[in-house]
Amino acid sequence: MSETEAETDETDTHEQADTEPEPSDDAVVPVGVKLGSTRTVIVYPSPDGEDTETVRTLTCLATYEDVLTGEERILYGEEAATEYPDTVEFMLRSGLPEDEESAESAATFFTELLKSNDVPENSAVVYAIPTIDNEAGLANLESVVEGSHIGTELVRSYPESLCGALPAFEDGLGAINDIFVTINMGSTNLEVCAYRRGEQLVPLSTGSITGNEVDRRVANYVEEETQGRVNIDLTTAREYKEEHADFEAFEPFTDVIQQPGGGSHEFTIEHSVMDACDEYVDEVVDEVANSFLPELANSYMKVYQLALDQPIVVTGGMACLPGIAAEIERRLTDELQRDVEIVRADRPDLAAAEGAHEIANHLADGL
């Protein structure tokens, strides 16, 4: 939930997915990776080769001193965020490791995650990268993945929006040969681009329309709705969004906070969460309709015409919110005055790693 992401619980997640042939002992294992600002997802074959396993956890790290040995211990993911909320480090808040220190923390996190889940070393690794004009950050991310013990046979990166789009198409990897538009709605960036046989055209990226900004608005609107009686942090705001935002059937919800000096205060949220999400959709539609599509038409008119005849894929954590794809479809259709179809993967929060795994599986076959 990437983003902020919805449809989540606060524990590390392992899921079963598509069936794959059972590998031999020396077979190269395909691994898909998405190191996200909020959550990291890894997809790889199960030990028996009959299924794939999905590991999904918060991208964060905490350290503590072992009281018996005095040694430094490491926690990552939900355990770290729950037990050490005061010191936990989310090292990819901007979407990339910005400096040497955050890259080192990300490498430690990634190493611990891989070791805990026995991700095979003899692997072909494909990892999803954001479309961000930040060469230093991308180089740091590359060092984190390529410096790990996995990917001994191959390590390659592909755009997150491309990886996340593949699971939304029936022919999966075959969609790389098509022309289509993607809207990647993540925690730290909104990315829009067209693909022509895998080539990225007129990529647009903005850090002003994000899942994190929705969280900030939720926190502000809750304070306004409760006449200043309730102040929530951004983590709680994200939880409200992920658990309650619903463009199809939102229902007001009640929560309780402890008041300074004792006692508690019960309050009901009727519109704060959906007001923030509604504004987000308007901004996404405006960016697509009035910034990205005119640029695409100006640079590649034929691609523009062909792309709008195909479904537009929404990916990223914000795409998990129930009904958001249909809402974007309705508003974009109205804005463009032509029929637009919006599709998404069943689990947009997992899609980038799943798509990366599909590519890795294809590349591994050629090794």
Rank of each mutant, 00 (worst) to 15 (best):
I324M: 13
H149C: 09
Y44W: 10
L336V: 06
V343A: 13
L201E: 11
E270F: 07
I183H: 14
Q337W: 09
E112F: 07
E160C: 08
G77N: 08
S123L: 02
R331Y: 08
V222Y: 11
T57M: 00
S143R: 12
Y44E: 04
E354T: 06
Y300T: 07
R238P: 10
D255P: 07
L58N: 14
D99P: 12
L92Y: 03
G262Y: 10
S24G: 12
S105H: 14
S123V: 01
G174L: 12
N184A: 15
E287S: 06
C277Y: 01
E121S: 00
E112T: 15
L234M: 08
P97D: 08
G316P: 09
E83Q: 05
L141G: 11
V126Q: 01
T38P: 02
T108Q: 14
V55I: 12
P322G: 03
I257N: 00
A136T: 15
E71F: 10
S208L: 07
M91K: 11
L61H: 06
T235S: 02
R196L: 15
N177W: 09
T268I: 14
R338T: 09
F267K: 00
A136K: 08
P348W: 11
V31Y: 12
F292P: 04
G323D: 04
E20H: 11
A249S: 15
Q16K: 14
P47S: 04
L293Q: 02
